[in-house]
């Protein structure tokens, strides 16, 4: 009986010590993860700024015109038309029917 009591007492001490050690270990782990999180957040912010800088409209336009040989459309070359499907729905071909508000005779031949 006495031996059992001592054994149980030792077990309790062992569990207590184990628990304390584990708490300390997890504490260190949390601290390390917090530091990692901070570093990653900082990297994320740096990347966001970099992405925003690289995706600036003037930079893209410059690359498009100077490196890729593109050019801005001239006046009159862009025509936005309103897509308005007929009441019966979409054309059997699957192409939405559109109503052109452009006087067709006025369109330059061979350009559209």
């Amino acid at each position: 009986m006495k031996t059992l009591t001592v054994f149980l007492g030792l077990c309790l001490v062992f569990v207590f010590v184990w628990e304390r050690v584990d708490v300390v270990r997890i504490g260190y782990q949390i601290e390390r993860l917090k530091r990692d999180k901070t570093v990653l957040e900082r990297q994320r912010d740096e990347l966001r700024v970099k992405f925003s800088t690289l995706s600036a409209s003037d930079r893209i336009a410059k690359l498009a015109t100077e490196k890729l040989g593109m050019s801005l459309p001239q006046q009159g070359q862009i025509i936005v038309v309103q897509s308005r499907p007929r009441p019966s729905g979409v054309h059997p071909s699957g192409i939405a029917l559109v109503e052109l508000k452009v006087a067709r005779n006025d369109l330059p031949s061979g350009r559209f």
């Binding site: 801005l72 009159g76 070359q77 006087a103 006025d106």
Partner: peptide, 24 residues
């Protein structure tokens, strides 16, 4: 105006004439 309306997808509300299209 022309570029912004195109960017916003605003459909034309008046006929386009050749004179206007080749204004520049």
């Amino acid at each position: 105006g022309e570029q912004v309306l195109s960017y916003l997808g605003v459909p034309s509300d008046a006929p386009i004439t050749l004179a206007m299209a080749s204004r520049r």
